[in-house]
Structures are given as C-alpha cells and as structure tokens.
Design a protein around this nucleic acid. Structure first.
Length: 554
RNA sequence: GCGCUUGUAGCUCAGGGGAUAGAGCAACGGACUUCUAAUCCGUUGGCCGUAGGUUCGAUUCCUACCAAGCGCACCA
C-alpha cells in the first residue's frame, strides 16, 4: 500500500470532477505534489496543488481548494482543511498507520524496495584510482558514496552495475616501472637516479623488496627495457590486488574491473577515433589528431592522438565511454573528484559526437575531504609523512564510522572529517547513535526470548493499542522510507539516507525512553513488539544502503 | 582572466518558489532501584555572504559583486 499515491490519485480525481462541474478550466492538470507539512498542526500531508493551478486557471486558489475538498473521496480521510494562501492540509485516520505497520513487517528484508527506477540499466563507475599506489582518503569518499549510491539505486528498482576503470596505461605506469626499477637497483646497492616524476612512497620500496625476495638480482641479467616491462606488470598486479583488498575491507566490491590497457591493445581506441574522423569530429592539425569538442561548448579542441602517434588519456576515455554505451546502459554515472571537473565538458562532447545523448552520462563531482584531529587539519600520515591512506583511516576510526562520515554530507559540500568524533563512542557520534538504536531492539528481543515471549505472533496483533505520539510518529516516519529511497535515488543523493536513518533512530530513542515494551499489558506488549520489529527492519535497510553494520550488541 | 562547487545558529551541516527556516554538536538546566544513560526531556542561539531583478510570494530562481575550495596540458 502506498498511501501517498492513493491520496494523490484521489486528489487528482477530485480536481477532474471539479473541472467537469465547471468550477475552473485547465487544459492539463499539474502533477499533485504531496508533502509532509513542516508542522504537525498542518496535518499528515499537505499540497499546494490548488495554488499551482490558480496560475493557469486564473481563479482564486482557495476557491479551487474548496472545490477539491468538497469532491474528495478517500477512505482514510478524517478531514481536509484549507489553510494560508491555498494549501490543503489532510488529516488522516490513524488506521492507515496500522495498515502501514503490518505492511512493513510483511515486507521484511524487502521493505523500501520499489520499482521507481523501472529496471533502468545504470552503470556506476567510481574510485578508478590509478594502480600506482595506495588509496587515500579522497578515494575513500568516492568508494563509500559510490557503493552507497549503487545500493540505493538497486533498492529503488534500477538495474545497477558497479565498475572500476583501471588506468593501467600511459605515462604513470611507465613512471611506476621506473620508480620500482630505481628502488630495485638501490636495494641491490647499485647507484641510480630516481625518476623526476616518480612515486616516492614507501610502498614502492616494499614492492622492490618483494621482487628481490622472490627473484633476487635475477633481473639484472636482462636489459633495462625488458626489466621495466617486467616490473611494470609485476607492480600493476600487486597494486591492483592491494586496491582490491583495501576496497573489500571497506565493504566495496565491483562487478567489473575494466582495463584501459585493453582499449589500447584491442584497437578500440583506434577504431573509435576512426569513426569520429569519419563523421568529422576529429581532424588533423600540427601532426596531431584533435577532437572538435568546441562544437559542444568546450573552450578549445582537445588532442586525442599526439604528434608522436601516442593516444592521450582522453582518447582512451572516449573509447571507454563508447564501450559503456555500446553495452546498453541507459544511464552512465561517473563519480569523479572535484579536481577532474574541468574534464566533464570534453567527455560529454565526445559522447555527443559519438551520437549518444550526453545527458545520459551523469558526472557526479565529489568535493574534497579534509581530515581533522584535535581541531587541526591532518594533511600527512604521522607514520609515513605522506597523505593519509584509506587503510590508515579505517584502522583509526573503523569501517562503519568512516563509511558513514563519508556518506553523510551532500557530495557538493567539502567534507570536514572529524576523526575525534568518528572515533568517539558517545552520543555525539551519529553512527553509534543509529547502531545503538538497532542494538537496543535486539537486546529487547533477547530478553523477550529469555522469558519465553514469542516474537512472531504478528497475526494476532491489536495495533490500535499504539496510540502515543511516540509510537505514531515512528510509524509515520517508517512509512516515508520507500519514498525517501526512491527520491534519494533519483537525486543520486545517498546522504539523504544517512540523515533519514539518524532521524528514525532519534524517534526510536524517544519512544524507548518513554514507553516500555517488556512487562506492559500483554496485548500492548505484542503491539509494541510489532512496532519495534518494524523499526529494526527499517534501520537495517538504511544501514544496508549505507554499507554500515547492524550490531546485535554494543 | 575563464569555468565548476560552496557561503544558512558559536561549530559541522540539512532544506531548496510558499505557512513561524531545521538537525547534530557546543552552552545552560533536568531524568538512571525500571527493556543498554553509547539514551531521553527542556532552554538559549538566525539581516539564509552583499546588492539588484523575476514573482501574488525568494533563504530557494536569474544577474552582478565579495569570500573559500578546486580546475584551466600533445599529464592522468
């Protein structure tokens, strides 16, 4: 049952009837927007529908509202009032809440699932860090937000695939090989210059040490070029498996790991460039090939094949996006760091040039993360003197807190990550606040079992006994969940689920402090068991989206 | 200089044409012989960056300006 949709339909019908009766005249009715009013006194739902129509109908909005209210037929309606400039406030009979509560328990692990996304085939590509070193905290935000968004879309009825684009071609891989080579020689006591743009991280030394542990100075016997080829591949594999492990430890997995190198090797880049050359979007100048991205609003055209014949990163990205759309995704979502936003225009231009609708490529830009500890910005890891890695952060604050903190802000906002707060086991910490609500419910169930009270007698529940505002507010809030999931998915805004979870937990804690479950009148106890069963289900669903664990005990 | 994002309570942030602008923290005052006090209840706290414009109505949309972050390669 979706009370909101039913009410919307009833209002639409009433408006139609009013038009038939000649109260006002409009060629087409606007959609009925129902909202939860800012204050309880304004009822359970409200709409500005009459005000929306007043524009076109050139009629007093209050008059339209009256006509609608007079004709409205809705079984759960207690009364409807016209307020302010023309709002209609709807006050429903509490019965609808009881029906909703039963629905939640019946839905169980499926609660929140809707077909809002209509099975649309969506790809979410995120993290996609170069396999040249460890993930840092910025990647962590991308990983948490990307995986939560994928979960969210899935629950809202989209057909989701998660993908990691491995930038395993080009200069940075050569630099990686050169860096490993330099460390290798250095460790074997051979003097060598460290490459200027090399990777100075500790992890490169570890890689070189591993190579020595396995093969000693074996690689001194081959040419430098051959050695670099070997090291490039060895390092690539090692870095990749570390990335995969770190992400898995963070609760992040991918359906597909897509290699850039393959696009070079299997000729897809050349093929795509050829196609764009044929339809005039790639031209030659100064010995290089250029994408005519200015045709789609870019500041300047961009080189895709350098004058030395080597494709640029953009060339690979064009072929990559071509491949994505060829795979039949209706929406392609990329999550990029704010430092890549300047890149959006040219990739969208390429997508358009390839004959696709560039609106089907959605690039979500994630603003930067600043770590704070003791009120100070933490730029460097104490241990290594380099940027703080994701693995270090998880070790410090825990996986659950890290994920939640990364997700809880809108992606447009820079994130001030308060490590002290994330670590604190106190009421200040929103993660624990939510998990604690879940654990409290689990604890109540454990104690009920101890005194042999059955927890699944949901058929014989007299829900009408739930009458306090604490109980009714909880049910109301839970009832909003499927809608919240659908609209958060549509807005690509997983932070809304973090916020919702916090609000729901707050309502539960208030209830818990005010109403007892165990030991009250048996019928009321049964009803309250049903209530907290539903709360537990709903909190679990929110945590599932966020990728945060739901502890039975704390 | 150009572009993207942001400017809302002391702090961190939601909201996003409409009814008295919300939450958490901080500050202050209360609640544990009772299902976990990692909790709850209450109080205090706002020219929604500035100036114009559109609108019956703007914190929300538009323009300019100011401030912060991030970009502006034949790097990725």
């Amino acid at each position: 049952m979706n009370i909101k949709e039913l009410l919307q339909d009833a209002i639409g019908q009433a408006a139609q009837d009013a038009m038939t009766d000649g109260v006002f005249c409009l060629p087409v009715l606007p959609p009925v927007m129902l909202e939860i009013p800012p204050q309880k006194e304004y009822g359970d739902y409200a709409t500005n529908f009459a005000m929306q129509m007043a524009r076109g109908a050139k009629t007093n909005p209050r008059k339209i509202a009256e006509a609608i209210v007079e004709r409205l037929q809705f079984p759960w309606m207690e009364r409807a009032e016209i307020a302010g400039p023309g709002f209609i406030n709807f006050y429903l009979k509490p019965d609808w809440l009881y029906a909703m509560l039963s629905d939640i328990i019946a839905a169980g692990e499926c609660f929140g699932q809707t077909d809002a996304g209509q099975g649309e085939k969506v790809q979410v590509e995120f993290v996609s860090a170069n396999p040249t070193g460890p993930l840092h905290v910025g990647h962590g935000r991308g990983a948490a937000v990307g995986s939560a968004l994928a979960n969210l879309l899935q629950m809202a009825g989209y057909d989701v695939e998660k993908e990691y684009y491995i930038n395993d071609a080009g200069n940075q891989m050569d630099n990686l090989a050169l860096s490993v080579n330099a460390r290798y020689l250095e460790l074997l006591g051979i003097e060598s210059d460290f490459p200027e743009d090399g990777y100075h991280g500790q992890d490169i030394i570890v890689t070189a040490q591993r190579i020595i542990a396995q093969a000693g100075d074996e690689y001194l016997k081959i040419s430098q070029q051959e050695r670099l080829d070997v090291f490039r591949e060895l390092a690539r594999q090692e870095k990749l498996s570390i990335l995969r492990e770190d992400l898995e430890a963070f609760g992040v997995t991918f359906d597909i790991w897509f290699s850039e190198k393959c696009l070079h090797e299997n000729g897809e880049i050349a093929k795509t460039c050829k196609a764009l050359q044929n339809n005039g979007f790639i031209y030659e100048q100064d010995g290089a090939l250029w994408l005519k991205s200015t045709a789609y609003g870019d500041d300047k055209d961009r080189v895709v094949i350098r004058d030395n014949g080597v494709p640029t990163y953009l060339a690979a990205d064009i072929a990559y996006h071509h491949d994505k759309f060829k795979r039949g995704f209706q929406k392609v979502i990329n999550i990029w760091g704010a430092d890549h936003h300047g890149y959006i225009c040219r990739v969208k231009a390429a997508v358009s040039a390839l004959g696709y609708n560039s609106d089907d490529l959605e690039v979500l830009i994630l603003q930067m993360v600043n770590l704070f500890q003791g009120g100070e910005v933490v730029k460097m890891s104490k241990r290594t003197g380099q940027g703080v890695t994701l693995a270090e952060l998880i070790e410090e604050v825990g996986c659950d807190a890290a994920r939640f903190f990364f997700i809880m802000r809108s992606i447009d906002s820079q994130l001030d990550f308060d490590m002290d707060l994330a670590k604190s086991r106190s009421n200040d910490n929103p993660v624990y606040y939510i998990q604690y609500a879940y654990a409290r419910i689990a604890s109540v169930f454990r104690q009920l079992e101890e005194i042999d009270v059955s927890v699944d007698r949901k058929n014989a529940v007299n829900m009408e006994l739930l009458t306090t505002s604490y109980e009714l507010d909880l049910i109301k809030k839970m009832g909003e969940f499927p809608d919240e999931v659908a609209s958060a998915a549509q807005e690509r805004a997983p932070h809304r689920i973090a916020r919702y979870a916090h609000e729901l937990a707050g309502l539960f804690h208030s209830f818990y402090n005010q109403c007892r479950v165990i030991g009250v009148d048996p019928e009321l106890q049964t009803a309250r068991i049903a209530l907290i069963t539903a709360v537990q289900i709903t909190i679990r669903q929110t945590l599932k989206i966020l990728g945060v664990s739901a502890p039975e005990k704390m």
